[in-house]
């Protein structure tokens, strides 16, 4: 998978929120959705423009590691580690955000406990959440998945 597509899969749940907030319109959202689901080509500049907030943090990480912002390892480390640390530290808006909302923003690892059509029931820390299987249509009950908000992003282990 291209680094741009890996980035978009993890960032896509935020596109949904950008749409809710009126920062992007339905057309742009649908366009991003098609690219994310079908792994289509997208320019780095487009992603940098839409998800510019993430790149404030990605650049911090890249600088620390002396690598570029689009280095695969940097993007991976950002979504799998740094992103949650930022939320836990309560940086920026997360400072005043309620715990449940902060938890939803984190990238978590969870087990699939049920499946019905395109919805997966997942459990983590004794909590239940229902997420879309659109990025992992092959995922089945008992599989472990990485989840961001309402999307199972990838199957692990």
């Amino acid at each position: 998978m291209r680094v741009e597509n890996y980035f978009l899969r993890y960032a896509f749940p935020c596109a949904f929120i950008l749409k809710q907030r009126g920062e992007i319109n339905q057309k742009k959202y649908d366009w991003l959705f098609d690219i994310a689901v079908n792994n289509k080509y997208i320019k780095k500049e487009e992603l940098e423009k839409i998800f510019f907030r993430a790149f404030n943090y990605i650049d911090e990480l890249a600088k620390e590691k002396n690598k570029g912002r689009w280095d695969f390892e940097i993007i991976k480390e950002y979504f799998l580690k740094r992103h949650n640390e930022i939320i836990e530290q309560g940086r920026d808006m997360y400072k005043d955000a309620p715990e449940t909302l902060k938890e939803l923003s984190k990238v978590i690892e969870a087990e699939i406990t049920d499946k019905k059509e395109d919805i997966l029931e997942i459990r983590f820390n004794n909590k239940k959440r229902f997420v879309s299987n659109i990025f992992v249509p092959e995922a089945k009950i008992k599989d472990k998945v990485r989840v961001h908000y309402g999307f199972a992003v990838e199957i692990i282990g």
Binding site: T100, L101, S132
Partner: peptide
């Protein structure tokens, strides 16, 4: 609740929901 991609994903305690609505 929070909905994403047309799916109701999780219930949010009332206090947390009202707090986040206030933030927005």
């Amino acid at each position: 609740v929070i909905m994403q991609a047309g799916i109701i994903i999780q219930k949010i305690p009332k206090d947390d929901a009202l707090k986040s609505l206030k933030l927005f």
